[in-house]
Design a protein around this nucleic acid. Structure first.
Lengths: 226, 226
DNA sequence: ATATACTTGTTGGATGCTCATTCAAAATAT
DNA sequence: ATATTTTGAATGAGCATCCAACAAGTATAT
């Protein structure tokens, strides 16, 4: 589906074309191509410096094309954020469902999902932060990001509560759930910032947290204890 | 020092003037006034929509003024970020020094400092995130933000390590320190995003974590155990 | 099949607006 | 009188949007 991934610094290279520059690529494909180009530009140039021309160039198409497929720059950005939010939700929900019924297994799966290659790339993290930086002043962004979080946090809260009942931990479940998902977001932040932190390093830190918070369910390195 | 704090939504109201609109306010005062106006605009309109005119209006001064005191918009933004980074560092270092020699007391003080009124306001958090959103594509911002973190994280790491040695905890200290400061950043993020989370709620979540991670030093509610 | 209208995509330049910067003049200090 | 600070309007660059022309498919007619 996604064509770009390695993201070399190479200049003019366009996205390997779904349908080439050929006219009449299916509507949805061209939209997706433009969305990917937008994520690309956001991650390279930042929100403020991303122009319509940049996006068109990166997609290897002409200047007017965006206004044909999306009505405006704003619409394109919203569609891009929507796409990322949907992709993220689909991803973690799939992991949740595949993890089986045990609360500990589900929690472990959710944490692992956050550091999976498919959603956790420099490119996408940078795009997320570009949006988040603007979110407080744009209700639309805030709504989309908020929706992303709401359900996710509820899922985490439920699991934290379930583990508490299973093992009689003494913590305050809502507070601990909040600190858990804040930590996951913070790790994303540090990954995006560079600093030599790797996806594996971040994942290890998250697992260390699990081991500390739920010692009867997870070993200090985050491996599950039966 | 800082004049604005309550930040009502009120429209044209300028910053209560250090020196009024009177000409010839001391150089440093006018610079500070413009920096405060910049933080204000960033938090209300976001990075992309903050213009020189906005800033001048909010400061209650004329359009050309910024280019006189700072040479360019870029310079003003950098000075603003610099100011926030300095203020933050001064603040937590002061808390650290005032906490006395015990590692647990110092850790508690650092966590409390992060949720103190002076640095943790909606206004300032929003400004931080405006910068962070652009940081990946602007080396200068990244350097300033990175410097902010480096020393802070080292301090936290040292304390986490010290507590481990005091009480023989089983965790991996570097990973746990990373997860701790990620959590603090994530809590800032959620505070900025709104969602009904209060400063006290965020602080409580952080303390809950302390209780979970260092049970021999902190009670479940984060109070110190002697 | 081949020609003819019609729909959908695509292009690149024209248009007009917003904004950072510049600057000459005015105001205030020393 | 001279130096510093402030003003507000002029300048010009960059950008999103618009649009007229063109291209490529698709349906209908011959």
């Amino acid at each position: 589906m996604r064509a770009l991934c390695g993201v070399g610094e190479a200049g003019v290279t366009a996205i390997p074309d779904p349908g080439g520059r050929a006219r009449k690529a299916p509507r949805e494909m061209r939209r997706q191509q433009l969305i990917e180009a937008t994520i690309d530009c956001l991650s390279r140039r930042g929100y403020a410096d991303t122009t319509m021309a940049d996006i068109a160039d990166r997609a290897g198409l002409s200047r007017g094309i965006v206004n044909f497929h999306f009505e405006s720059k704003d619409n394109l950005l919203i569609a891009t954020l929507q796409f990322m939010a949907d992709e993220y939700a689909t991803h973690w929900m799939g992991a949740y469902d595949r993890a089986g019924p045990a609360a500990a297994a589900r929690l472990q799966a959710l944490v692992a999902a956050d550091f999976d290659r498919r959603v956790c790339t420099r490119r996408k993290l940078a795009a997320w932060f570009a949006f988040w930086g603007e979110a407080k002043s744009r209700p639309t962004y805030q709504a989309l990001c908020g929706a992303r979080d709401k359900v996710y946090q509820e899922a985490l809260s439920g699991l934290v509560e379930a583990l508490k009942q299973e093992a009689g931990y003494g913590y305050d479940a809502p507070s601990l759930a909040l600190s858990l998902c804040s930590m996951l977001e913070g790790l994303w932040f540090r990954l995006m910032m560079g600093d030599g932190l790797t996806r594996d390093g971040a994942h290890a830190a998250a697992r260390a947290w699990l081991g500390v918070a739920f010692p009867r369910h997870f070993a200090p390195d985050g491996a599950r204890v039966t």
